[in-house]
Amino acid sequence: MNRAVNARRLRRDQTLAEKALWKLVRNRRLGDFKFLRQLPIDRYFADFVCEAGKLIVELDGAAHDGREDPDARRTQILELFGYMVLRFPNERVLADPGGVADDILAVLGSTRL
């Protein structure tokens, strides 16, 4: 399957947490920063990417339980491309979306310095 088709499928079949975060960041709603969803970077698809802030936001659900090593390796590779990677558990996004948005905005605000 090619990358564009896979990215389109991931955007269509997003989790509840991804839907919740997308509502907060789409259309420059968060600090006027533009976010993209499921952007292919190297061999990965980054959940949410802000190119201007060189930030990737990854949401971790049950599939990530016990996967510290693969997630750490993925983060290392994405950082090689110049991005900072923030990870949030799905539960936090669903329970405290405003807090997650504040955390993302704090990082993006510090990149403007």
Rank of each mutant, 00 (worst) to 15 (best):
I77M: 04
K19E: 09
L113G: 15
L59W: 06
G98S: 05
P70Q: 01
I56Q: 00
V25K: 04
R29H: 14
A7I: 04
R37S: 11
M1T: 10
G31W: 10
S110P: 04
D13W: 07
K19Y: 00
L59S: 09
L30N: 10
V93S: 05
E68N: 12
M1P: 08
R28T: 09
I41D: 04
A17I: 06
E51T: 07
A101N: 04
E79G: 05
V85L: 03
F35W: 05
E51C: 02
I56G: 02
M84F: 06
A72F: 09
L108E: 09
K34I: 08
D42Q: 12
T111M: 12
S110T: 14
K19G: 11
R26K: 14
Y83H: 07
K19A: 03
D71A: 05
D103H: 13
R11A: 08
W22Y: 04
R37I: 08
L59I: 13
F81H: 14
L16Y: 06
K19P: 03
E51K: 05
K19M: 10
F45H: 01
G99H: 13
R9D: 04
A95Y: 08
A7C: 09
D32I: 06
G82H: 00
R12T: 11
Y83Q: 01
A4T: 06
H64M: 01
N90W: 04
R11W: 09
V85N: 01
R37W: 04
D102F: 11
F81M: 02
A46E: 03
L16H: 07
L108K: 05
V107W: 06
G61C: 13
D103Q: 15
L94D: 09
Q14V: 11
I56W: 00
M1W: 06
N90E: 14
A46W: 02
D47P: 08
L105G: 09
A4G: 03
V5W: 08
A4W: 00
E58H: 02
D71I: 02
F88D: 08
R112A: 15
N27M: 12
A4L: 05
N27E: 14
W22T: 01
G61W: 11
K19N: 07
Q14K: 13
T111I: 12
A52F: 07
F45N: 00
M1S: 12
Q38L: 05
C50G: 04
Y44M: 04
V49E: 02
R43Q: 14
A4S: 10
I104F: 08
E51F: 07
G109S: 14
Y44N: 09
A63I: 12
R92K: 12
K34D: 05
G82A: 07
A62C: 10
A7S: 15
V25D: 04
A4E: 09
A72D: 01
D60T: 05
L30I: 08
I56R: 00
R112E: 14
R26M: 13
A106V: 12
E79P: 01
L94M: 15
A62Q: 14
G53H: 00
A106I: 11
N90Y: 02
P89G: 10
W22I: 06
K23C: 11
R74F: 01
N2M: 06
A72G: 01
R87G: 09
R112K: 15
D69V: 06
F81P: 00
I77W: 10
A62E: 15
N6F: 04
E18C: 02
Q38K: 00
F88I: 05
D13S: 15
A17K: 07
M84R: 09
R92Y: 05
